[in-house]
Simulated scan of single mutants.
Amino acid sequence: MKISDPVPGESPLKADCPCRMVFDHLTSRWALLVLIALSDGPLRFHALRDCVEGVSEKMLSQSLKTLVRDGMVSRHVEPTVPPRVSYELTHIGQEVSEPLRAVFEWIGHRVEDIKAAQHRYDATGA
């Protein structure tokens, strides 16, 4: 199966393809988990941090900034003291989160097969 060129004359397999940068952003470790967490609805920063176990505040902040910049996530600030900030998926963020959730569900269904393959590989001493 040949991958289609989303940008005419550009291949997503080439390092300089404009789609490649967005692909790299979406598939980064924390951004991927943030998109999945936000697919259930808007969350405030600390609730999102607690939802995505293991992410530091620094990495969460960086991931959110990138996703906001790319138009996947919107940031809402309520004019309170202190300000209340929440994040939610935009329309395109919702679109991309659907196949990402499907991949996570597939992993969940196949995790035992994957673990067995890892065990077989590790047993060969490779």
Rank of each mutant, 00 (worst) to 15 (best):
R110T: 13
V103L: 14
M21D: 14
G93R: 10
K14F: 13
V55K: 02
I36Y: 01
Y87W: 09
L13T: 10
H76L: 08
E57Y: 03
K115M: 08
T80H: 03
A116N: 04
D16K: 11
L35P: 04
D50L: 07
A47Y: 09
V34I: 15
V111D: 11
P83V: 05
K115T: 03
D5V: 00
E112R: 11
K58T: 15
L43E: 11
D16F: 08
R49D: 01
G54I: 06
A31E: 11
C17P: 01
E95A: 13
L13N: 11
L60M: 15
Y87F: 15
A126S: 11
S28A: 11
S61P: 00
S74V: 12
A117H: 03
T90N: 06
R44N: 05
V68A: 04
L26W: 03
G41K: 11
R29C: 09
V68E: 05
A123S: 15
F23V: 10
L38I: 11
E98P: 00
V81P: 02
R84I: 13
Y121I: 07
H25W: 09
K115I: 02
Y87V: 08
S63F: 01
G108S: 06
E10Y: 12
S61A: 14
S56A: 01
E112N: 12
R69L: 11
L67W: 13
D122S: 11
M21S: 14
P82N: 07
V52L: 04
P99N: 09
F45N: 04
K58V: 14
L60T: 09
G9I: 02
L32C: 08
H119L: 12
C17K: 06
M59D: 14
L32M: 13
D5A: 12
